[in-house]
Every structure is written in structure tokens, then in C-alpha cells.
Design a protein around this nucleic acid. Structure first.
Lengths: 153, 153
DNA sequence: GCTTGACCTCAACTTAGGTTGAGGAATTAG
DNA sequence: CTAATTCCTCAACCTAAGTTGAGGTCAAGC
């Protein structure tokens, strides 16, 4: 459906974003970018894809998984190039998530303080590993970081 | 070297900690517990191992990797059962690490705020993905969460 | 017009933190 | 004494986020 012929090659995108070529292909596989192909079957990117991929890098630094990022990208417009406002909206979403994660981590840290020296570490009653309120700590996050394990569910 | 005959079986440890038997064996493989064996080759645990494993669970909730936990366990006494003071010392270490991580995440969050709406997301100059000061964000942590990737490097 | 470099696909490997299953041996209950 | 559990080891599999390499094609410079 895109008609733009002759955009940027994957190598040029790699240079401009700092990503490895293999990573860019991988992100495509994960549905994070969707380049055209030229007559010879090589990928051709638009300039807007640089921002898209940069955003992936930033969101990853913030601790989000590729599938969380993909989910947010679903909010971007289909037909047109995303505007600054489109990106800002997504950024705000990630900001809110991050706030929640920091709050969860801070709460956990406070509990640890209460537990230090109390000797309760081996007891099930210890509020540090009561599974009940685990949800409080995980935003919508790298779950394996704060409780859930990927395979165990 | 340990002479204690007839301690707890792996199933009993699993019941008391809430861990899966397979996970307990895995933790042994990772050097986090070191049970005796009975005449028939079955694992026999001491009561102190319950606390050890509980501590592993807590530290994991706090976001630490098994190898970080193993490293801290090296500080525990060899010949005797660890005391409350021994555990408190380790807890304080994890508390300090956690503080550092929270600080790193908070700093990142602040930067995101500055970036929202500034439109710089695609630029290399964006301080949100300047690789230079990455070390500030990673404590000694799940590095793959905040920048480094395990395979890359 | 051909050679070099960039690109293509596909499969296998990596780390972390385990789970699942096969095939067998030990322990416990009755 | 036997049957049912529990336990043993070992190998294969899982997710996430990629990398590495093999074998082959495309595009660009001279």
C-alpha cells in the first residue's frame, strides 16, 4: 500500500539509530517496524522509521518489553506519519507506567527496611514475600523482574 | 564435612518454602544451597536452608539475579549456621542496591518528562538515549533491564 | 562486466530462570 | 513384602532479546 519508492536501506537505518542490522530485522519480526521492499527484495525504510526505532530503544531503557512497546505502537495512526503529539501521548503512557513501577519498588524497599533485623526472613508471614499483593509491585512490566516468572504460570 | 544425618527431604523443603522441587534443585546447581546426601543418594537439608532459600525468593522479588544473590551469600559464615546479624548485613546490602536502582529509574523518569513533547525523540542528542551515562542507571542490576543486553558485548 | 560489499533467509546459539518428561532407584505405608 | 510415593539424573523445552554463521542474491564502483 505504501507507494514511496527508494527510501533508506537497513544499513543506513542502522547507522542513524545505532542499532545492529540484526536487531532491526528482529524488531520487524516482532512487528515494531514494517518496511517496504524494493524490486530486489531489500528493505526500504522511511525517515519516520528512525523515530520509531529510536523510541523502541528509549522504551527499552525505561524497562519495557518489546511486546509492551508493540502494544503502545498500536495507538499510532495507520495512514499518516505520526506527529509529535502522537509520540507525546505514548511517552506519557510510559511515564505513568514508570511511575507505578518506581512506586512498587519503593514500597518493596520500605518493607525490606522493616524486615532487616526482624529475623522473620524464613517465615511465611513475612510481608516481603507474601504473594498476595504481588500485583502492587508489577505495573505492566518486566514481570520476571518483580515476581512472576515467565514459564511458571 | 557435614555430619548431620537425616535432615529434611527436598519435598519437605518445597512445602515449607513454597518453591517447586525443580527450582530447589536448580538453585543447588547455581550454588545457592548445598545439601547433604543420605545413604541412598537423596538430598537432606538443614533447617537453616529454609531461610537461605526464603532469602533467595525475597532477593529475587527485589529484582536481583541468582548470581548476585550467590555473590552475597559468599559473605555468610562457612562453619556455622548464619545468625540474624549475618542475614541483616546482607539485607542492608540489597537495600542499598535497591536505593541506587530506584534513584536511577527516577532519574530516567525525569528525563522522560523533559523529553515528552520536545520532539527530540529521534535525535542522537536526546539525553534519554545517550549511551554515555548509562552506568548511572544500572546499579549492579538486571542489566538487561536498563541498557546492556546479555549477548551484546 | 565483474568484483566487492551490502543485503537476503534460515537455523542455531546465547543468558536467565526455570519446567517437563523419561527412565530408574529409594523410601514409606499398609 | 509389595505397592505407591518420592526421589534421582539427564536431556529437552520455554521466553526474551537478540547475535552469529552459512549459503546465496543484489547493487554499486571502477
Amino acid at each position: 500500500m505504501k507507494l514511496k519508492a527508494s527510501g533508506l536501506s537497513i544499513g543506513q537505518i542502522a547507522d542513524r539509530t545505532g542499532l545492529a542490522v540484526s536487531a532491526i530485522r528482529f524488531y520487524e519480526e516482532q512487528g515494531l517496524v514494517n518496511p517496504d521492499r524494493n524490486s530486489g527484495g531489500q528493505r526500504r525504510y522511511e525517515r519516520a522509521d528512525i523515530r520509531r526505532l529510536s523510541f523502541v530503544m528509549i522504551a527499552q531503557r525505561l524497562g519495557f518489553t518489546l511486546s509492551e512497546i508493540r502494544a503502545q505502537f498500536a495507538a499510532l495512526p495507520e495512514g499518516r506519519t505520526p506527529t509529535k503529539a502522537d509520540w507525546s501521548k505514548i511517552s506519557r503512557h510510559f511515564g505513568a507506567e514508570l511511575d507505578a513501577r518506581i512506586a512498587g519498588l519503593t514500597a518493596l524497599r520500605d518493607r525490606l527496611d522493616k524486615c532487616i533485623g526482624c529475623g522473620c526472613l524464613s517465615l511465611r508471614q513475612c510481608h516481603l514475600y507474601n504473594r498476595q499483593d504481588e500485583a502492587a509491585a508489577n505495573g505492566q512490566g518486566p514481570r520476571y523482574l518483580l515476581g512472576d516468572t515467565p514459564g511458571a504460570g
